[in-house]
């Protein structure tokens, strides 16, 4: 039953994909044919003679993808690095910023969740800092840190800290009193209570926060790298735009989606692992 259900869903997905690609191919073909015939001097000057003026059809993008993916780690200069290398740079930045954030957000979130006083005291800070777009920090980070690499890691850090912090505090504060009482009647010390009762009880909420954070971090890294430049998938997109290589732009947009999906899948798995039913 579920198998045939899954199969039908898959079939529908494939049909949709083919339809969309077909429509795209068709649309771009007719567009490319427009403006044929003799061109005036003026038209030629305004770029109407350019063969690349239109959005490329999917067949071209797939060709480009094949070319890139068959040699993802080539490195022949600052402006010609393989997609694999660019993604690796971005992932490295995202993961360093993310783990630094986790290193601070999880213990501090625990503290805030355990102590209503800390919760109240830190709440105004969190409420003000949280809605700030992470990119708004970029100039200040560049000025203070004076290093573009570290600055983009800082931006990832600052954007991924809030969901983790808030969810950890929320999860820890919401642990059922009965379970805490179980720890108390078994004379568990504070550390054992934290790790054997509160952490597993709050884990589903904490991991949800971590999952939201990694999603946001991957969103932000593209924008940060467009600003900072040099390497990374964000820079790659912008660089190919400057080269007017729309095949590469579309291809890298898709790659951003695929990597983001993979990151999310890792946390979805972690979430399943820590989830319990009451």
């Amino acid at each position: 039953m579920t198998r045939s259900y899954d199969f039908r869903a898959l079939l529908l997905s494939i049909v949709l994909l083919i339809t969309l690609l077909g429509a795209w191919e068709l649309a771009t073909n007719t567009q490319a044919q427009g403006g044929g015939g003799e061109l005036t001097e003026y038209e030629r000057l305004m770029g109407a003679g350019s063969q690349r003026a239109g959005v490329p059809p999917p067949s071209e993008v797939i060709g480009k993808a094949w070319e890139e993916l068959s040699d993802p780690f080539h490195n022949t200069g600052a402006n010609d690095k393989g997609i694999g290398i660019q993604i690796a740079y971005s992932l490295m930045r995202v993961l360093s910023g993310y783990f630094l954030a986790a290193l601070i957000a999880l213990p501090v979130g625990f503290l805030i969740g355990m102590s209503p006083l800390m919760y109240k005291a830190l709440d105004p800070f969190i409420q003000v800092l949280r809605p700030i777009s992470p990119l708004a920090w970029m100039p200040l980070a560049l000025f203070i840190i004076q290093d573009s690499e570290a600055s983009s890691i800082f931006v990832i850090f600052i954007c991924s800290i809030w969901p983790m912090l808030i969810n950890t505090a929320f999860g820890v504060a919401g642990v059922r009193k009965d379970w805490v009482n179980v720890a108390r009647t078994h004379e568990l010390g504070p550390l054992k209570t934290a790790f054997q009762v509160i952490l597993p009880a709050a884990a589903p909420t904490i991991v949800t926060g971590m999952r939201i954070s990694i999603g946001i971090a991957w969103l932000v890294i593209v924008a940060a790298e467009m600003l900072v430049g040099g390497t990374g998938i964000g820079y790659y997109v912008w660089n190919e735009w400057n080269n007017l290589d729309l095949n590469s732009v579309i291809f890298s947009i898709l790659m951003i989606g695929v990597v983001g999906m993979a990151l999310d899948a890792v946390f979805a798995r972690l979430q399943r692992f820590v989830t319990y039913t009451e």
Binding site: N181, R184, T185, P200
Partner: peptide, 19 residues
């Protein structure tokens, strides 16, 4: 004064750790 392993408790709602 304070909870102790000398006094075991069985709660109405079982209070088992669900994980």
């Amino acid at each position: 004064s304070g909870p102790s392993l000398e006094r075991g408790v069985v709660f109405q709602n079982y209070s088992l750790l669900p994980w």
